[in-house]
């Protein structure tokens, strides 16, 4: 069999959901994530133009960087003028800000929240900890690279970056979206097995579905 065919068969395989108890497996989906193919070129450009101007952050603070999101919304920095608003539920948000270090306990929630967001979805990794572990590079409990577990679109360096840097990061994200380069969701769907293996390597008590939409 050719390598391409093997890949296609892998794609069609259902997920096992082995972490769940037997009786609950029916309640959760066993489909793999699928790619989003871009629509007609001009329609896609138009949608990207609108997406870049309406960024909804998931209101989930993962680590110390979340404290930078609060001043972002207040009178001084006023991110709402760029169309950046908060959303309480992952179903409606399309930007996920990883605020700094992600511990073992948090990465489980990050993966769940990220998978529940409906694509196209973007990830901003905030702070040095998400890039190479930052000052927690030798910690027993803090992951070093967030891009081994979920795809990242843009990094904002610093420890902690100030809200100005975060707004600069948002502007970078906007440019990428408008150019149509933010395909984190497709990347996740293509390399799903690799991401899942990395996640399961550190989350040893995997007690959730393999992919929760």
């Amino acid at each position: 069999m050719k390598e391409k065919d093997i890949k296609i068969i892998e794609k069609e395989m259902k997920l096992a959901n082995e972490g769940l108890p037997e009786m609950e497996r029916d309640l959760f989906a066993d489909d793999r994530p699928s790619r989003i193919e871009p629509l007609n070129k001009y329609l896609e450009q138009f949608l990207n133009w609108a997406r870049a101007r309406s960024l909804w952050i998931l209101a989930y603070g993962t680590g110390c960087g979340a404290i930078e999101l609060r001043p972002l919304m207040t009178a001084r920095f006023d991110a709402f003028r760029y169309g950046i608003a908060g959303r309480p539920t992952p179903r409606q948000a399309n930007v996920f800000i990883i605020g700094g270090y992600a511990s073992l306990k948090t990465i489980k929630r990050i993966v769940r929240s990220y998978e529940q967001m409906q694509g196209p979805k973007y990830v901003i990794a905030l702070g040095s900890c998400t890039i190479n572990g930052g000052m927690y590079y030798d910690s027993y409990n803090t992951i070093n690279r967030i891009d081994y577990y979920i795809p990242v679109d843009i990094y904002v360096t610093g420890c902690m970056p100030r809200p100005e840097s975060l707004i600069a990061g948002f502007n970078g994200l906007k440019k990428k979206i408008q150019a149509g380069q933010c395909d984190g969701m497709n990347k996740y769907a293509d390399n799903f097995d690799w991401y899942k293996a990395n996640q399961k390597q550190i989350i040893k008590d995997w007690n959730m579905p393999d992919y929760n939409w």
Partner: peptide
């Protein structure tokens, strides 16, 4: 338990968390 001093956190981190 990780706070015991004979636990090598750096080695564990490098083994587990894909250091850049």
């Amino acid at each position: 338990p990780p706070m015991r001093r004979d636990f090598d956190t750096l080695a564990y981190s490098q083994k587990t968390y894909f250091p850049r």
